[in-house]
Computed example of a mutant assay.
Amino acid sequence: MFETDKTQHKDNDSNIDEWSDADEDELAKIDFFDNGCELSKFSLECDKLLSAEGTPLQRYRPKYLIVSDFVQQYWCEQQLLYRLSPEAYLLNVSPGVDVSIEESAESKEVKERGSDVHLARELEIQVPVEVEVITKEDAWAVKFLNIQTMILAFTKGHRVAREVPVFGVPFGSGFFVYGIIDELQYNPDLHTVEILELKTRKSCYPPRKSQQDKDAFQVGLYAEMFNDLVRGMVTREMVENHLKLTLDTPLSGGIQRHIHQQNKKVKMKIFTCGDILDMVLSQMQSFTCITKGTVEYVHQESRKQISTFPMTLDQEKLRSLFLKQCEWWRGERGTVGVDVEDCWKCSYCQFAPFCEWRAVKAAESKH
């Protein structure tokens, strides 16, 4: 049975695609100039702010990152920075000018509708159970139990699991990353696992290629993290060191009771977070690696399928993209906005009016 907790430790990895929820066929033309999209060499004012006060990793994600961080970065790195650091955006605003960085009511409504579709999918096969957590070890034990729920379900012959956490250090990057997969599909006859990522749309039309590319990147990163667990590349020491957990500390009473309720035959009386982690790391190695995935686009209002996008995972391409993103988090390069062919994205960005990247590229075009 699916586990959750009262503190809602989903780390904002909501899997709700705000960019695909707009009708891209009705985009207004943008007066956007570009003179190439080379990596910024710390020339932007926002990059100077970062270099003075610490790298993005140090400032915003000192312990671990979430998959959504990298997906947003893939969409527009400049936008991600502004979301993480509103003060970087305000550097471009003249004194006395009133600026709102709040999301529009329409954008919030779109996200809520998307969340409703995801919840309905989840409730088709599992009912969330609230488990009280007290310590950070409790919170992570719940995440590990959610993975074990998937493992036990597939072992019993179930073919679908939803809202499945994954974690690890992709491509040896040194960054601990956490995410939640929308759906895993298991074929017990072939012993194969595939990913299905659900994206909801306000529009009833399929998304642009750049949208599909972003979604494919997300699926690929999920698959890589799942496969690292299968390969045994995620270790107890890795988790303990990155998350600063005390793994041998007994879990709180609420977690203990829930474990025993779900596992009547267990002989242990007291469990630790490390016990749950060890079981999950061992059991995951019984699966095979994911090689295929599908992105499904669903219309929010009618909840009918718009289209599906099957994909074969390209590990080398994913590695190159991911490691290039890691350079920014480490402070090894400056921030990069969208290229000219993707300037339509700015129509839906709340930071477009005072975006430094747009202003700089427009100025460059005049020289």
Rank of each mutant, 00 (worst) to 15 (best):
I270Q: 06
I270H: 07
F271M: 11
T272A: 03
T272Y: 01
C273E: 08
G274M: 04
G274Q: 02
D275E: 09
I276A: 01
I276W: 02
I276R: 02
L277K: 07
L277W: 05
M279A: 14
M279N: 13
M279R: 13
M279C: 13
V280D: 00
L281Q: 06
L281S: 05
Q283Y: 07
Q283V: 13
Q283P: 09
Q283W: 11
M284H: 03
Q285V: 01
Q285L: 01
F287C: 04
T288K: 11
T288P: 04
T288I: 10
C289P: 03
I290W: 00
I290P: 03
T291A: 09
K292F: 11
K292Q: 11
K292W: 04
K292A: 08
G293V: 02
G293H: 00
T294R: 09
T294F: 03
V295P: 00
E296V: 15
E296T: 11
E296R: 14
Y297V: 07
Y297F: 10
Y297K: 08
V298S: 02
V298A: 02
V298I: 11
V298L: 04
V298Q: 01
H299I: 01
Q300H: 12
Q300A: 13
Q300C: 13
E301A: 15
E301G: 14
S302C: 12
S302E: 07
Q305V: 12
Q305F: 09
I306P: 10
I306C: 12
S307H: 08
S307I: 10
S307Q: 05
S307L: 09
T308D: 10
T308I: 14
T308Q: 11
F309I: 06
F309S: 07
P310C: 07
M311E: 08
T312Q: 15
T312D: 10
T312N: 13
T312K: 12
L313F: 13
D314L: 07
Q315N: 15
E316V: 05
K317T: 10
K317A: 12
K317D: 06
K317I: 04
L318V: 05
L318T: 05
L318K: 06
R319I: 09
S320D: 13
L321E: 06
L321H: 07
L321W: 01
L321R: 08
L321N: 05
F322I: 01
F322Q: 02
L323W: 10
L323Y: 07
L323S: 11
L323N: 10
